[in-house]
Amino acid sequence: MSPVPVLFYVGGVPIYSHGFFLLFGLLAGLGWVWIEARRRHWTKEEVIPITLAAFVGGMIGAKVSILFFNGFEYAPLALNLYAMFDPRIGPGSIIGGVVGAYIGGYIASKAIGKESCSCDAFAPAMALATAIGRIGCFLSFEDALGKPTTLPWGVYVPIEYGGGYLAHPAPLYDILFNLIWFGVLLALRDHKWMQNGNLLKFGVAGYAFFRFFVEFVRNNRLLALGLTGQQLASVVLFVAIVVYFVMNGQRRSTLSPAM
């Protein structure tokens, strides 16, 4: 398997796999939100501001979080509004994007007067978009794919891509997980316990759990305790969501009448 950084040319202009699948993934995610919105009878007065806010929040979160994951030397890029519109700088981190999209969508929901969270429509869309976006990461051999491995499915990463060894195809693990997770979230979307924002929280917790482990075979910078910034963020997200579910479960059992 060789890297495919350029997918095709349009009038001599190269279309790079990373950027192409990032955009394709976002469009697929947006399309899925649209399908879910119709199924959930959202009005366009709700869909448009919430989706726009989630998109902008996600893009901002993805870039700003780089400050935490990659270090303070990235401050001139991560904290500069104009750098967000520089196509030479990559999109940033998925985890930061998810958190930013959640915050943006939540604020927009409150601003238009929805008293409860309507963000569950985004849960399967998020998994689908990530699965598609990761195709670009794999084809472009981003971050030299992963750590060296002797496993039979290891992919040879050329030296010019930072490798020179057989590596874990970490983006493929991500794709596989997210496709399965997409199916799980679809199956759970009408469950009575998975409403009012719980499906999205469950979706994020699942991805955080997976991401914590897949980071061990990725080449990201270690931040503290022998863990990468993405792992630390995943732990915080996962624990926060578990605590929320436990407290919510306790409150529900307190409120429900004694049998």
Partner: peptide
């Protein structure tokens, strides 16, 4: 802002821009 970001993503397809590394050009 969303329009700007969409244009960035469209133009980004013609740039070998990864997640801040290794091809970013410092401003």
């Amino acid at each position: 802002i969303a329009l700007n970001l969409t244009i960035t993503l469209l133009v980004g397809m013609t740039q070998n821009a990864f997640c801040f590394a290794p091809f970013f050009v410092p401003l």
